[in-house]
Simulated scan of single mutants.
Amino acid sequence: MEPFLRNAELGEPVRFLYKGTPRVLLVLLHDFPMQNIVLSVFPRNMRLPDRSTPNLKIDLLAEMSQSPHILSEVDAALKAKQMKTDVDEYLKTRPQGTSFLSDLKQKLLLSPGEAARAGTRYDVPLMNSLLLYVGMQAIQQLQARTPHGQSKASNASLAIFLVGAALDIFQTLIFELETDDDTSF
């Protein structure tokens, strides 16, 4: 609905969809008042833990160590924009004095024509690819470098140093990027 609502020009089919969506959600809410249908979906072959178990430690469940299956190529947008090698290099070596972090914002911006068509200044598929890829690489680095015999408490303080390059990227994006409704561009 977002692309149609952004321009506030609703054709007849979109208007029907707009009216029908809240009705479907209200029927679901009425018929299943104690459950959030969307958030409670899980695969049939998975057994959920009992939430009422005393002292349940979520991080100790076997399912927490399984990575989710991602059916798309996470780094496709990074490869298309020739950014993957730069990201990999920064994550591996974290070189001091490099222009990677300072150039990152500019690489995520769309040209004015593309921005007008997309309704945003940023290349959203590229940004999604970057965030997911950097997060996945940080987890892999953490799992590869953290000794399995250490406790979770000591791992938490060590984790910051092991994934510092990924945190640098995330921090740069947090501080450097503006929201799209910010008019100071």
Score class of each variant (00 low, 15 high):
Ala138Trp: 00
Ser65Leu: 05
Ala138Gln: 02
Ala159Gln: 02
Gly119Met: 03
Leu60Arg: 13
Thr179Gly: 08
Ala115Ser: 14
Ser52Asp: 11
Glu9Asp: 12
Pro68Cys: 08
Asp75Glu: 14
His30Asp: 14
His69Leu: 15
Pro43Gly: 04
Asn45Trp: 06
Met83Lys: 02
Gln171Met: 11
Asp180Val: 01
Tyr122Arg: 06
Lys107Phe: 07
Asp59Ile: 08
Ser52Trp: 05
Thr53Trp: 04
Ser65Ile: 02
Gly119Lys: 03
Val14Met: 13
Lys152Asn: 05
Ser129Gln: 04
Leu29Lys: 15
Asp180Lys: 01
Glu178Arg: 09
Tyr133Asp: 03
Thr85His: 11
Asn128Ala: 09
Pro43Asp: 05
Leu61Thr: 03
Ser52Met: 08
Pro125Cys: 07
Ala159Ser: 13
Ile160Phe: 13
Glu114Leu: 09
Met127Thr: 07
Thr53His: 09
Ala77Lys: 07
Met34Arg: 14
Pro125His: 06
Phe185Asn: 06
Gln137Trp: 00
Val41Asp: 11
Pro68Tyr: 07
Lys79Ala: 08
Thr85Gln: 14
Gly113Tyr: 06
Asn55Glu: 12
Tyr18Trp: 10
Gln150Asp: 08
Val27Asn: 10
Ala138Pro: 01
Ala144Thr: 01
Ala144Glu: 03
Pro125Gln: 07
Phe185Lys: 03
Ile58Cys: 13
Pro33Arg: 08
Leu60Val: 05
Pro54Tyr: 03
Ile160Thr: 10
Leu91Ile: 02
Leu131Glu: 07
Ile169Gln: 05
Asp59Glu: 12
Lys107Gln: 14
Phe4Lys: 09
Gln171Lys: 14
Val41Met: 14
Leu39Tyr: 10
Gln82Arg: 15
Leu108Lys: 09
Asp180Ile: 01
Pro33Phe: 09
Thr21Leu: 15
Leu162Lys: 09
Leu71Ser: 09
Asp88Pro: 00
Leu10Gly: 06
Ala166Lys: 00
Leu91His: 02
Met46Phe: 15
Leu10Met: 12
Asp86Ser: 13
Leu60Trp: 04
Met46Ile: 13
Pro112Tyr: 11
Ile169Cys: 06
Asp168Asn: 06
Lys19Asn: 13
Thr53Val: 10
Gly164Ala: 12
Gln82Met: 12
Ile37Pro: 00
Gln82Ala: 15
Asp180Glu: 11
Gln66Pro: 00
Pro33Thr: 05
Asp31Tyr: 12
His30Thr: 11
Glu9Met: 11
Ile58Gly: 08
Gln140Asp: 11
His30Arg: 15
Val24Met: 12
Glu114Asp: 14
Ile37Ala: 05
Tyr133Gly: 03
Arg47Met: 08
Pro95Val: 04
Phe100Gly: 06
Lys19Trp: 07
Val24Pro: 01
Asp182Ala: 04
Thr21Tyr: 15
Ser111Cys: 04
Phe32Arg: 14
Ser40Leu: 09
Ile58Glu: 12
Asp31Trp: 11
Ile160Ser: 09
Leu25Gly: 07
Ser40Gly: 13
Phe161Asp: 08
Gln35Met: 12
Asn36Trp: 10
Ser67Val: 00
Ala156Cys: 03
Leu167Thr: 02
Gln96Asn: 08
Pro22Tyr: 11
Phe100Asn: 07
Arg47Glu: 11
Ser72Arg: 13
Thr120Asp: 03
Leu104Ser: 05
Met1Asn: 05
Phe100Trp: 07
Val41Gln: 15
His69Pro: 03
Leu26Ile: 02
Pro3Cys: 03
Lys81Pro: 03
Leu28Thr: 04
Ala62Leu: 10
Ser102Val: 13
Pro112Asn: 10
Val163Leu: 01
